[in-house]
Computed example of a mutant assay.
Amino acid sequence: MLVPVDVLGGQSVPRTVVDAFASVPVTLLAYREIPDQIATSHARDQYGDRARAELEELRSVFEDAGCVDVSTRLVFTHDRLKTFERVAVDEDCHAVLMLNPAPKLESVLVAIRGDVNLEYIADLLGTLLTGTDLEVTFFRVIGDESDRDAADELVETAADELEAADVDRDRIHAQVTLEGSPTQAILAAAAEHDMLVLGESRPSIRRFIFRDRAKTLARGTVDPVLVIRGEYLEDGEDGEEHGNEGAEADESDENGG
């Protein structure tokens, strides 16, 4: 899981999130977005030591919580969104966590857009939920009552897949709602939960996470948002060069970052 953190901006990872995801490998991405007129090398020279100290402190929090596989990246960049995409691909991260405060973490809302990633989403959720008591609600928005039967089948299939990943059925719920605006329906439902989970669509992680509906959802909710990457995403699939961000200063740690 990729966890981008603006360490120099005072952002931190809620302890509830640290504890919930201690069972999965984590890449902590300490980043700082800087104006175009400032060279990344200059920013690194000026702020690098402070950022590294903050990053190491955050890493120790994850390790103290029992996370045995924590790698780190430190990036000064002119485009944080491209950086998130590149690092997620470079590190083969299965999900990207967009941080928001999480005073409690007891229930997760999983917004289902289609069945393309159901097995993949359920498999990853099963891993994430290991060692937790989190409850999960699969949520599907329909625009017409005639779509309800198919939607009911879809969320029940998702629940079956998660149960097959060794999550107790009594922790899994399914909900279908009729609403003209899927975004507003998801935000309203997310307000009743502690984390929102979205599945990625083609063609690129950046296009899904940071544009259109998902961007609105990430900004509109006060909860952490976990975006699960599609396993079909490959480098360069959408014609973009993930490994060449131009003006960016990046360093990794010795543990695979």
Results as ranks from 00 to 15, higher is better:
M1Y: 07
L2R: 07
V3F: 11
V5N: 06
G10T: 04
P14I: 07
V17N: 00
V18W: 03
A20P: 00
S23L: 04
P25D: 03
P25K: 00
T27Y: 04
T27W: 01
L28S: 04
R32M: 12
R32L: 13
E33R: 12
I34P: 02
D36K: 15
I38G: 04
A39P: 05
T40A: 13
S41I: 08
A43V: 04
D45Y: 12
Q46Y: 14
Y47E: 10
L55I: 00
L55F: 02
E57F: 01
R59W: 04
S60D: 15
S60W: 08
S60Y: 09
V61T: 14
V61H: 10
A65W: 13
V68W: 05
V70K: 15
S71M: 08
H78W: 08
L81M: 10
E85T: 13
R86Y: 08
V89C: 02
E91M: 11
E91G: 05
C93A: 14
C93P: 00
V96A: 08
N100S: 12
P101R: 00
E106H: 04
V110E: 01
I112Y: 10
R113W: 01
G114Q: 11
G114E: 14
G114W: 03
D115L: 00
V116T: 13
L118V: 14
E119S: 14
E119P: 01
E119A: 13
I121L: 14
D123I: 00
D123W: 06
L124Y: 13
L125R: 01
G131C: 09
G131A: 08
E135F: 09
V136P: 03
F139L: 04
D147E: 15
D152H: 06
E153Y: 02
V155M: 10
V155F: 09
A158I: 02
E161I: 01
E161T: 00
A164T: 08
A164Q: 14
R171G: 06
R171F: 05
L178T: 12
L178V: 12
E179M: 07
G180S: 12
L187D: 04
A188D: 15
E200T: 07
I205E: 03
R206M: 11
F210E: 06
F210C: 03
R211C: 04
R213V: 14
R219T: 12
V227F: 04
V227R: 01
R229N: 01
E231T: 05
E231Y: 10
G236R: 05
D238N: 13
D238C: 09
D238E: 13
D238S: 14
D238H: 12
G246L: 04
G246R: 07
G246T: 02
A247K: 09
E254M: 08
